[in-house]
Simulated assay, not measured.
Amino acid sequence: MNRYYSGPTSHNFDGTRFYSPGQPSADKSLTDLWRWRRGGDKATWPKHVAITPQTPPARSDVARITMVGHASMLIQVAGVNLLTDPVWSDRASPLSFAGPKRVTAPGIAFADLPPIDAVLLSHNHYDHLDLATLGKLHSGHRPLMVMPLGNDAIVKTAVQDARIETGDWHDNIKVAPDVTVTLTPANHWSARGIADRRMALWSGFWIHTPHAQIWFVGDTGYGDGAIFHDIRRRHGSPDIAIIPIGAYEPRWFMSAQHVAPEESLRIFHDVGAKQALGMHWGTFQLTDEARDAPKELLYASLAEADIPAERFVALDAGDVHLHGI
């Protein structure tokens, strides 16, 4: 029985669990997890990396994207303020005293946030769906929260009167008169514990605005690349693609769920993005690679492909991208 969602079977739901049709399964056994953890190949990260926090403007018509950290980004465009996967907690974990601890402060202090109109939640993993942060956002901003099917049940356990819109892949949700969000497919999975695997859906978000088309990819493996070619057919090429580049080692364990930087570059090519920004690295140590390895491998891949480094920038906490400026 699915504890989060009840609905008819569909192209990506078998009546109990969601899945990515035709793509490698990201499911791993406890034996696989034990094999990974006992491998002993985990790099040592610094305990703290200094950053320069930003104080963003109240609004922006041109696209202005500020990296908070990991997959948390403030997207300001067309006078609307959006937050993706907001996590201001010290740990990406159900526990306050254990689990991945952030090594960079948030790129925007919570008190310095402008008015938040909408929150885009890609899936329910703890490094993306942080109930403590959502509760603070609801109290201070009361944003619309947009998320894939089933995740509303989790959010409502902590924020009972949250304003929530849910959708399946390819559904459109209006967040402002001129701004619409479309949920896009991703090759990933979901779980908050050991008995709820894939009971809530995961997605990316295509943000349609008069000033820019912005695609927040969400967590994904590359698979056969079909979903990225389909996204381009449906939406065209984004002005800005926000693509994950980290949490990818070891590949035998992670490849179905997280792209490595050279695959991030393939996504960039597949959708024909004018500009790409790298996320999902450098804040929480979730996997084995060194902290700066995703950025270094991305820039090496760009150089090998003879692509200027400014076309695909790995954003660190506190970095700001202004589109077209």
Rank of each mutant, 00 (worst) to 15 (best):
I214N: 00
A305K: 07
G107Q: 03
G218E: 04
H235D: 13
S301H: 05
W169T: 01
M254T: 10
K274Y: 13
S29G: 10
V159R: 05
A111Y: 10
N12V: 10
H48F: 14
R91V: 02
I242C: 03
R17F: 10
A241D: 02
A300C: 03
R234H: 05
M279C: 14
G236C: 04
E263V: 07
D288K: 06
P100G: 08
V259I: 15
T104H: 11
V80L: 02
L129E: 03
T182I: 09
Y5D: 00
L265R: 08
H321K: 00
I116Q: 01
L121E: 08
H48A: 12
D270A: 13
L298G: 04
W215V: 01
G79V: 01
F97V: 13
G204I: 05
P94F: 12
V271W: 14
A195P: 11
E296I: 14
A290H: 10
M1V: 12
I307F: 05
V119A: 04
L134T: 01
E249N: 08
I154V: 15
G221W: 02
F205P: 12
T283P: 09
V80C: 03
M145R: 00
G193D: 15
G39H: 00
G278K: 03
R91T: 03
E304V: 10
H211S: 14
R17N: 06
A195Q: 14
D224T: 13
I307Y: 06
Y248I: 10
G278E: 04
A276R: 01
G135K: 13
F97D: 11
F97P: 00
E304H: 15
T104C: 15
F216H: 13
P100V: 11
V313M: 14
R311I: 04
T133L: 01
D85G: 06
Y222M: 07
T287N: 13
T104Q: 14
P177R: 11
R37Q: 12
V68S: 00
P244T: 03
G236H: 05
A58G: 07
A191H: 13
Q160P: 15
D239F: 12
